[in-house]
Design a protein around this nucleic acid. Structure first.
Lengths: 197, 197, 197, 197
DNA sequence: GATGAATGAGCTTTCATTCAT
DNA sequence: AATGAATGAAAGCTCATTCAT
């Protein structure tokens, strides 16, 4: 293994650990010493990998967005109807909210609310473009095939992102009477009805 | 004017000022001295009105939820179709996001993400019940009149809350190519299509 | 009743309430608002009676010392042996520690330890002279009657004050296996044996 | 020198400096910045050694009790009469009150009076057990050898602790007309007379 | 005499970041 | 690469005292 590989591996393990802590405790309540301790490394060394807490936070959102985007890319590649794709996306999103809740929570608890952290370097939504791009492809494909109504992309994107994020928030608040997967059918149907041609 | 009125007025002015600052700068980046300075009052005196920063944050979410709820209550009282009500609600929400953005932003940037602050005293969603209750009434009325499909309430609530909140977030990120009111028609239509019978 | 009497009465009620609070919570942990609230009066008005927290503390120690001194004076006036007087003094001290613990506790928790408060105005032990004087009379009488050994007064005074205070401290720490009155006989005997001719 | 030794040394230097300041100015009048400044270290770094002011105060009482206890332990190990041991203990106590007054003063001014600080973690008298244990051994040995009267331990302990502490208090108040060592003979005699068989 | 809102200095504690080793 | 002690500015909060009413 090359030395750079070793460094890359450690970099990723820092990202994953920080992601966990940030999503559970929030950005400001998670300290650099917390992260270093969880990784059993020194704070000084952590700074050899990420030059500041803010930089780390931005790397995490890119990483997370990339993971989520690549999952949706797979769905986009399937040879199924747009209606079925909607259901696949909702399913994978909710599955992820259950299995790797830290990713979704990071969007909600860290990215959404600490704008001052992301302002410099993540303007617009470039740090979450991995995710947005795939939603855009999904939408354009659906319009092209005549299954979806042609409307402003952001009206559609806000529906996806807001609706799914909102449901995960409600799950986190423990107000949902049912397990989140219970809602897959209803929500897929609502989204498809909203967007269909 | 009675003394209690004077104190109540000052209390409300603190809530409004803190609401502004929290929604713009976030909960952790807004300090008590910041709030006191904006109000031209002393830090110590501010604590005569609210016993801690957390308590203040909780009072603000109740206040905000109450204001938003009472606006929706007016729409619920109108003698119009459910489809028209959807549009009215979307309109007032976006108008508020434009005229008093601090209220919507507070939901997104403070309430949504600083769960540790609201855990004690705002469990479930009791501090935002003023808002939820009205959405529930809207939905139940629509189902009762046969205009809306009967489905789990949270599937519908997540759509409203998440979709509208998501759009305001996109507005805040300045990624929307159009003014937010531009999207009213599309979004109202999407919501109605999603929920209609 | 004259106005000055009314004021004197209120003054004393402040002293007694403050004595309670100081002895239970300590000088620095008891606030002026705490005292005012317990008295159902305003902080501003409290300052009409005592010009500062320190002044109040000094008045309390004089008051307490006076009460304790007058009790011992009664014993000194009895026509009994010095050995019996020792037992009477120990008895009244421990009874007071049980019935009005605030007085003894005030000596231990406030007077003893917040020297900076009492330095200006209570130099030496002039604010507790009411108590010391009577112990001095007891001792001189005992020496004069030949029952007590003639020794430096402070050696004898330290014995009385320290021993009795120490026992009450142990009581307060809840380390005494017995009720404090259980120790009266042993302690009276120890003191008399220590001082007798 | 190992790194851990260096840290332990610094820890102890903090304890000693804080002990000085607390005993002179009292617990509440001594601030953490005061201590840090006296040590020429930063406030933040002090917290790397003790997690709170209260924790520091508790460590100091354990340390002090240990030092005092080990001095008495030496006396207990001597092959001399109990009467002579009393004099040795009084002598060492007063010598310490002269040479290292901060230790005795800490007992009187900090431990005795700020119960709320020590309640959690120093219940009963476990933080001063180093000292108490040795007094207990002294007393039991004296009883076993027939030199001391068999009585409740606390009656005897209160005498020692209260009497000696009381004398040091009088010294601190500057009311003693003589140097404290002047009283060694009288007081040793009084204690021995009080306790002897 | 009586009220209690207001002041503001001062407290304990936290934490991103640095740097000598 | 790695360590973790050290920094110091800034946070939330307290409270003796004052003063307009």
């Amino acid at each position: 293994m090359k030395i750079t590989d070793k460094k890359a591996l450690k970099r990723e393990s820092i990202i994953q650990t920080a992601l966990q802590l940030f999503s559970i405790n929030g950005f400001h309540k998670t300290t650099i010493p917390d992260i270093a301790k969880a990784l059993k490394m020194s704070v000084g060394n952590l700074y050899n990998y990420f030059s500041s807490k803010d930089v780390l936070a931005k790397e995490i959102i890119k990483y997370t967005s990339g993971v989520l985007g690549s999952e949706i890319r797979e769905v986009n590649g399937l040879d199924i109807s747009t209606e079925e794709k909607v259901k696949e996306i909702v399913t994978l999103y909710f599955r992820m909210a259950k299995d790797k809740p830290e990713m979704i929570e990071y969007f909600l608890r860290v990215y959404l609310s600490n704008r001052e952290v992301f302002n410099d370097g993540c303007e617009g939504m470039i740090c979450v473009s991995g995710f947005i791009t795939e939603i855009m492809i999904f939408f354009d494909d659906g319009v092209a095939s005549g299954e979806l109504r042609n409307q402003d992309f952001f009206s559609a994107f806000g529906l996806f992102m807001g609706y799914l994020g909102g449901m995960v928030f409600l799950k986190g608040e423990e107000v949902l009477p049912q397990d989140i997967e219970f809602y897959i059918d209803d929500i897929s149907r609502n989204i498809y009805n909203a967007l269909k041609a």
